[in-house]
């Protein structure tokens, strides 16, 4: 499902216009991204939680050359689904 199809489905369900729905979806993504950048996890009710994890620096090996190097520490985004959603999708 693309973003356009998602907007159309939401608009159809809520009765909002597609433009308004698009504005709300864009704002939602911005709020989620900002929250993640701020280091906050975003909990979506009955769906799951988007959170960030700190990935430590580690040794990595290039399989072609066998060269070993150090990867930098970084934050990664992870998603942990809600148990209810898990049961639904299971």
């Amino acid at each position: 499902m693309t973003t356009k199809e998602l907007i159309a489905q939401i608009a159809k369900e809520t009765g909002m216009t597609k433009r308004r729905t698009e504005e709300l979806l864009t704002a939602t993504t911005e709020v989620i991204a900002e929250s993640l950048q701020d280091g906050k996890a975003v909990q979506l009710q009955n769906f799951g939680t988007l959170e960030t994890k700190q990935r430590a620096a580690r040794k990595i090996t290039n399989p072609k050359t066998g060269e070993v190097s150090m990867s930098q520490a970084k934050r990664v985004i992870g998603f942990r689904p809600n148990e209810r959603l898990k049961d639904i999708l299971r």
Binding site: E23, L24, A27, T28, E30, V31, I32, S35, G39, K40, A41, V42, Q43, L44, Q45, T49, E51, T52
Partner: peptide, 17 residues
């Protein structure tokens, strides 16, 4: 880690739009 709760997300969205 702090959580952006459902209410807070709703509030932030309302403020944004």
């Amino acid at each position: 880690q702090q959580k952006q709760t459902w209410v807070a997300l709703r509030h932030a969205l309302a403020k944004q739009v």
